[in-house]
Write a protein that binds this DNA or RNA. Structure first.
Lengths: 143, 143
DNA sequence: CCCAATTAAGTTGTGCACAACCCATTGGTG
DNA sequence: CACCAATGGGTTGTGCACAACTTAATTGGG
């Protein structure tokens, strides 16, 4: 049967499908607040770390400026954050939350319970999955 | 520290990051053949199952016609497949591989080895990950 | 000091993902 | 037969992801 249902292919498809299913779970929870899942991830970094450069946001989320620039522009247009050129280094742009951006943290609240009950996994299995994914995200030999 | 690095959030981000990292691994392998990762998934279904309706492709890949229609149109423009309205049911469209589409299977070959050595996981861990993802893709209580 | 290489953001173009819609065909049911 | 809900596929609009490129600022070496 050749490689029709080979191991790696299955894992890769499951990963791809699970990632899309996960954002689909977040959608109805975030939609009322007017933000998407990637936007929510950016906000989480800002809630946790305070004002952050575009470069550091990119490092944290593994996204480049081609993705972040328009995304941040949309969040800025919503009044959730501001962007300002760095004083010391004019190349950098520092992203800071506005008051509405800060308040959104409490408005959205903790999404954990809603998500946990939507997945058929125990807490142990989730922890296991998390550790495997973290290791999977740390590639071995890129060459 | 509130829910700044909560369990579910970490897993969801790891899933999101791992999925993107995975398609990034496929990109250089598929690029020379002129297909993307989602296009490759469609081809795999066709290689495995033969002519398939758009509806069944959507069920297999968990994608709707809004995603599949333009994707299939691009594969058709490349001469890799053809689309034809069903004879019995005029609503359905049957997707069939052309000869070049069939030959691409051998041209691309088995990508497993290249992918395995790019991930820092043992075969056992990959199997474990696969089973967890399969269960994660089977949601518990949607309501 | 000056210039080349590097870095930080942004822009452009392509393709995926999905919601919201449209339309034609189908398969009942009255 | 007439009607009507359901189904299959397509289109439109928005946003994400990324490659490739551009521009401006910075840094380091001669």
């Amino acid at each position: 049967m050749r490689e029709s249902t080979a191991l790696d292919e299955m894992i890769c498809f499951q990963l791809y499908a699970a990632s899309r299913a996960m954002t689909a779970l977040y959608r109805p929870l975030l939609d009322p607040h007017g933000v998407t899942y990637p936007q929510y991830l950016v906000l989480r970094v800002l809630w946790h770390d305070g004002p952050t450069t575009v470069r550091d946001l990119g490092r944290a989320l593994r996204l480049d400026s081609g993705t972040l620039s328009p995304l941040l522009k949309r969040l800025e247009a919503q009044g959730l954050l501001t962007r300002a050129r760095g004083a010391d280094d004019e190349r950098t742009v520092l992203v800071s939350l506005t008051d509405p951006g800060q308040q959104l943290r409490d408005a959205i609240g903790d999404l954990t319970p809603a998500l946990l009950c939507a997945v058929d996994l125990t807490v142990d299995e989730l922890t296991q999955l998390q550790h495997l994914l973290i290791r999977a995200n740390r590639p071995g030999r890129t060459a």
